[in-house]
Simulated assay, not measured.
Amino acid sequence: MMAEFINLTSENIQREHLCCIIRSKKIHPGVEAKRQWLSDRLKEGHVFRKLNTKSTVFIEYAPLETAWVPIEGDNYIYLYCLWVTGSDTKKGYGRELLEYCLENAKKSGKSGVCMLGSKRQKAWLANQEFMKKFGFEVVDTTDNDYELLALSFDKSKPRFTKKAKKSKIENQELTIYYDMQCPFIYQNIESLKEYCDQNHIMAFFKQVHSLDEAKDLPCVFNNYGIFYKGSFQTVNLINPESLTKILNK
């Protein structure tokens, strides 16, 4: 039997499983925050395609013009996430999902597809080696080892904004930018706020509420970004232990 995939729509999003967090019927605040964020994005061309089971097998992408990332480029698709985990790995699902995205982009007359990467694979970014097998290549970089990967259909290239490449802010205290695209973010932010309060750590948590705010961010961003002492640190969602390491640098 062939695998069945479905796309989330305004009609089914309230009842469909969102893949990232496997839960019972009990309401999870991170999942519901993601559901609301995604509901607002669907009308902008955002695509969330998933295996039609309660599992973590999905791809998520959007037109670059409406993608909440500080990346510039004409007529591209931005790929936020491609994730296959657990017993569903090595079944070809990742390939099927990516091929769907690429075919969708070509049929829509797009110039290509791009995604955030890094010289060293980050835990919360799509597998770069897998993407490179399809022809994705590095088209822009930052001084802190982040990369913009793209598969171009017409030789054009997207790029990081100048502000994102600078990766500096005036505030020297711990500063975390985030949106609610990922269902893990809500609980992560709550955990870090509690840790900072308990340990008397001055911290600024800045939620990104709009496309304009996202395009104007001072760092590379997939849905999360951390600064300390005015310098960008990581796009990885971190726990208190990892935060302590950053603060002790």
Rank of each mutant, 00 (worst) to 15 (best):
F134S: 09
K155I: 04
D179C: 09
I176W: 04
V138H: 09
S167W: 03
L149G: 01
G109I: 00
I169P: 00
S108E: 15
T142A: 06
E103H: 14
T175V: 05
D145S: 15
N127Y: 06
R159W: 01
A126M: 04
K106P: 03
S108Q: 11
R159C: 11
S152V: 02
Y177C: 05
T142F: 07
W124S: 09
S108N: 10
V113C: 05
Y178K: 06
Q128N: 12
G135F: 01
L125P: 01
T161A: 02
S118G: 07
P183L: 10
V138K: 08
K165Q: 13
E137Q: 13
M131R: 05
Q121K: 08
S156E: 11
Q172A: 12
I169H: 11
E173A: 14
F160D: 02
Y186Q: 11
T175G: 06
A164I: 04
Q187F: 10
T161N: 05
V138D: 08
T142M: 05
K168W: 13
L148D: 10
A164L: 09
Q187I: 07
F160M: 03
Y177V: 02
K107A: 02
K165G: 07
K166H: 11
E103W: 02
K157E: 07
Y177W: 07
T161G: 04
T175P: 04
E129Y: 14
Y186I: 11
F136L: 12
L149D: 00
E170N: 15
D145P: 02
E173V: 10
G112S: 03
D140E: 08
G112E: 00
Q172E: 11
R120H: 08
K133N: 15
N127C: 08
K166A: 12
V139P: 04
I185K: 02
L174R: 07
Q121E: 07
K119V: 06
N171P: 07
E129M: 10
M115N: 07
E129K: 12
D179R: 04
D154I: 05
F153H: 06
A123M: 08
L174E: 14
E147R: 09
I185G: 01
V138N: 11
K166C: 11
N171C: 14
F134K: 10
Q181R: 14
S118F: 02
P158I: 06
L125C: 06
E137H: 12
Q181L: 13
Y178E: 03
N104I: 00
N127K: 13
A150R: 00
R120K: 14
Y177E: 03
A123Q: 12
T175D: 09
N188A: 14
K119R: 13
V113M: 03
E170F: 13
A150Q: 00
D154S: 11
A126V: 05
Q172L: 10
I169S: 05
E137T: 14
L151E: 00
L151I: 06
M115K: 02
E147V: 08
R120N: 12
Y177H: 06
I185P: 00
Q128A: 15
E173R: 12
